[in-house]
Amino acid sequence: MSRVIVVRWAGGKADFGLDKATYGIMLEAALRALRQTADLDSVIGDMFPRGAIGIKTNCLTRKLNSTPVALADGLAEILTERGVDENNIVVWDRSNRELSEAGFLLNASFTGRRCLGTDTSGVGYSSRFFESGGVNSLVSEILTRTVEHSINLPVLKDHSLAGMSAGMKNMYGAIHNPNKYHGNNCSPYCAHVSNLAPIRSKHRMTILDAVRVQFNGGPGYMAQYIETYAGIIVSADPIACDRVGLEILEHMRKKYGLPTLENDGRPVKYLQPATELGLGESDLSKIELKVLSADQTGSVRDGELY
């Protein structure tokens, strides 16, 4: 049984995104529920025993609909407050340009929290290919050499080819040749990218930002298709996290009278092959879903998915 935690913000004012403190409250609630303990010190200690922690963002659409800086900040603060060395936190994506344009402050130095693209001088891609199924790719050396643990910090949105862009699709940003793997609704490529050895072995958790969800017209930003959901979806299971994200996305499409992704010719096909690779669980009946609602008073109650 895979566990997925959805935390929704009940404090309002989410239409323009949330701030670091708000994300902090939501993340703490999610981590406690995910590990079923109130002791966050042990949660962090158990999940990230030693070594650097990579936080993979999705910065494709600049500040419009990329991983919010406030979410990365909130997560980093939780980690550092529990003893993780700030310099052992590496916020990253494929390019410095995309990170900068999404509002992240680049820092490749030996002090402070690091933030860098794979294209940073001296970083680059692995010298050897990693293979899974039909995917043969070089993988960002941030993942292969710099970090021991990977937290995936994507954004939930519609995708013109894959149907949905969530956690697994975000790992296309870790390989050197993503353009080769968009055929057949990105399937089974999306599954195989997540199955590449460094990606699979270092993945610890996906935190899927669903505060402002683009339910159509993605992955580029289209303001008319943005709906405020005010939630984050957290799981150690990359497939289960995406599966729950898909439920939310389809619900929004239905609400706005749009066809299902399947009827729109963009079925999300990659979840099943990913399950067959043993990456996680895509069957909703085998996913333990917990929905919480949090507000500024710090109170956390049961919430509703829709």
């Binding site: 940073t120 001088s121 680059g124 070089l138």
Partner: peptide, 12 residues
């Protein structure tokens, strides 16, 4: 150049 030594270009 090699992708091992990719430079941080101003992409645009």
């Amino acid at each position: 150049g090699g992708i091992q030594n990719a430079m941080a270009f101003d992409y645009a």
